[in-house]
Design a protein around this nucleic acid. Structure first.
Length: 166
DNA sequence: GTCGGAAGAA
DNA sequence: TTCTTCCGAC
């Protein structure tokens, strides 16, 4: 499959998505961006740190600081002007059963990624005996393995595990 | 705010 | 299949 680093942020790490995650809806046979792609994308950029950000503490935990704005951004991306946090959060709750996300109970607007599950979901052929076929739909997370001390702004660092490229 | 059922869109 | 829309329950 074609690969492109859509959201790279070196040297602090970044997220790379496969091309199909970004193909236009009009493109035949292509998929639309998924909500968890979008969430990770926002989480990756400082410019949205006042809207959504990683939370220090649990691994993969993040807080939606401005629910209305996140919903507005999501609605714009999906061409759904009527999107709001009530609807967006319903979509997030569907991720519970898929084990992509879970709720941090008691903490307002706080959710947590289950990165382990994302890897399994995103690598359908992981652990399956070699068929010689490609890993369709795979995506990759990468990050600097050793956190540098005292060299950043003190903002919460994206708590992603260090994972190899395929 | 959060949850999850139900129906519908694409 | 992944949401989008709507909504009653807690």
């Amino acid at each position: 499959p074609e690969w492109r680093a859509h959201s790279v942020e070196s040297p602090h790490g970044g997220v790379a998505f496969p091309d199909w995650a970004y193909k236009a809806e009009s493109s035949p046979g292509s998929r639309q961006i998924q909500l968890w792609h979008f969430i990770l994308e926002l989480l990756q950029k400082e410019e949205f740190r006042h809207v959504i950000a990683w939370q220090q503490g649990e691994y993969g935990e993040f807080v939606i600081k401005d629910p209305d704005e996140v919903a507005r951004l999501w609605g714009r991306r999906k061409c759904k002007p009527q999107m709001n946090y009530d609807k967006l959060s319903r979509a997030l709750r569907y991720y519970y059963s898929k084990r992509i996300l879970h709720k941090t109970k008691g903490k307002r607007f706080t959710y947590q990624f289950n990165f382990g599950r994302l890897i399994v979901v995103s690598y359908p052929l992981w652990g399956v005996r070699g068929t010689g076929s490609h890993c369709q739909g795979a995506w990759v997370l990468f990050r600097e393995p050793t956190p540098r001390t005292g060299s950043h702004t003190g903002d919460p660092v994206c708590p992603l595990p260090y994972l190899p490229l395929l």
